[in-house]
Design a protein around this nucleic acid. Structure first.
Length: 421
RNA sequence: GGAGAGGUGGCCGAGUGGCUUAAGGCGCACGCUUGGAAAGCGUGUAGAACGCAAGUUCACGCAGGUUCGAAUCCUGUCCUCUCCGCCA
């Protein structure tokens, strides 16, 4: 959520920034609601002040045993007027709040201009794109041949988009998850969480999925709970309504979870095999930091996620998202992509974003700054990482001519073997 | 699913219709004291809106209602805790 004061005092600047994300965005309705609310509030406050002082008179008159009839007459008129205005104020202020919740975050000034993913910038590429001197297979073929992935059986029980990992496939998936968790815990100061998978609507409002993107999540109607699309949601809401101490910042939280996404409207678009699924596994990294440090922390976050790809001996590149491709809540974002030689595609496996105070305003997550004042802190998150596309790129990259998969050193302790055959 | 208790400032906690502009404590800040620290003493501090400020108003989970006036009474709702039931 954007700061209404900032919108009010710098409306041109905010508009200019927002249209970099989406040229159709406008905040005019917000400005007019805010204006109405402001003048109404002023009027109401004056009436309330009058009511307060007159009511006090009642107490004094009564204690003296004098008649209160005259004052009551005035007060009754005032009271009715105030009630009307209060009703109007409530409705205006809730309209304003709802409108604000629909406005995306403004992009950071350094986020490059652009309309779509075509305009994203490749920051760096460690994509040697290993040479194969044999006919390589894609992950679907490999998965079938090695009997480690079974999409047909999965579809029988759940429909399309739900992978079933089998034997060494299940082992590899589990090894990847454990390796990634351990890596972050050992090398950086993360606290591990195992979170609920179902959250209340307000939790999804904090992180920005609601109210705008309810179609993207699975909803349990009977209990009005949403299946988490990422552990970012519960991890961020750990501190909803909290006031953190500046000496406790930054806070680094890590959580593995299954993630559930309806992927409505994306049928037929890169949905082969593991490329786009309704349920997948992800190790998520969330940071709560002081505003002045958030961009430094973003850099570090990208590095923390990237290191994993190097250790897994995958080819990858870092992409900086242009304004038009930034998510609703992000001010700046770097994506990590791995090269899947079988698919002959770059696959997005991580998104590292700085949300600045956008989420913390929505979730009322504050800290006491050095001057003792309460302020909204900055939140960041990044996947560290999402497994299904890693899995695909992994078996495609490490396949051998005889159809076996070599396991890189970092994963061997978790697999208990050096190849899948 | 059934029964009960409760939700007040950063935290704890008093408060059952009108000097509550929310007592008291903890914490925090500053000062005194001290060789230094702790303790002690003193002073201050408290969320939100509008405003340069003075100030005004709002805020006692949330939403309604009663009343001239609500933290306090009524209704609904959400959440937390305890007990019972069910259960991996």
């Amino acid at each position: 959520m954007l700061d209404i004061k900032k919108i009010r005092n710098n409306s041109n600047e905010v508009t200019q920034s927002l249209v970099r994300k989406d040229k159709n965005l406008s905040i005019n309705h917000i400005l007019s609601l805010d204006n109405d609310l402001k003048s109404l509030t002023t009027e109401l406050n004056n009436l309330q002040a009058e009511q307060n002082s007159k009511s006090k008179e009642v107490g004094i008159l009564k204690s003296k045993g004098e008649s209160t009839e005259l004052v009551f007459k005035d007060l009754k008129v005032l009271s009715d007027k105030i009630k009307d205005l209060e009703k109007e104020q409530r409705s205006l202020s809730s309209n304003l709040k709802n409108a604000l919740l629909e406005i995306p975050n403004t992009p950071h000034e350094t986020s490059p201009d652009g309309l779509s993913e075509k305009d994203n910038i490749v920051v760096s590429e460690k994509g040697v794109k290993k040479d194969f001197n044999f006919e390589i297979k894609d992950h679907i073929e490999l998965g079938k041949q090695l009997d480690i992935l079974d999409f047909e059986v999965a579809a029988k029980m759940s429909g399309s988009g739900f992978p079933l990992y089998k034997g060494d496939g299940a082992l590899l998936e589990r090894a990847l998850i454990n390796f990634m968790i351990d890596y972050h815990l050992k090398n950086f100061n993360y606290t591990e969480f195992f979170t609920p998978y179902l959250v209340k609507p307000e939790s999804a409002v904090t992180t920005g999925q609601l109210p705008k993107f309810s179609e993207d999540m699975y909803h349990i109607e009977k209990d009005d709970l949403f299946l988490i699309p990422t552990a970012e949601v519960p991890l961020t809401n750990i501190h909803k309504d909290d006031i953190l101490k500046v000496k406790d910042l930054p806070k680094y939280y890590l959580g593995y979870s299954s993630c559930f996404r309806r992927e409505a409207g994306s049928y037929g678009k890169d949905t082969r095999g593991l490329l786009r699924v309704h349920q997948f596994n992800k190790v998520e990294l969330v940071k709560f930091v002081e505003p002045e440090n958030s961009y430094k922390e973003l850099k570090l976050l990208v590095k923390q996620a990237t290191n994993i790809l190097g250790l897994l001996e995958l080819d990858y590149r870092i992409i900086e998202l242009c304004t038009g491709d930034l998510s609703f809540a992000a001010a700046k974002c770097f994506d990590l992509e791995v090269w899947a030689p079988g698919e002959k595609k770059w696959l997005e496996v991580s998104s590292c974003s700085n949300f600045e105070d956008f989420q913390s305003r929505r979730g009322n997550i504050r800290f006491k700054n050095n001057e003792g004042k309460l302020d909204f802190l900055h939140t960041l998150n990044g996947s560290g990482l999402a497994t299904p596309r890693i899995f695909a790129a992994f078996i495609e990259t490490h396949q051998n001519e005889d159809g076996t998969i070599s396991i890189p050193d970092c994963l061997q302790p978790y697999m208990g073997k050096s190849e899948i055959k």
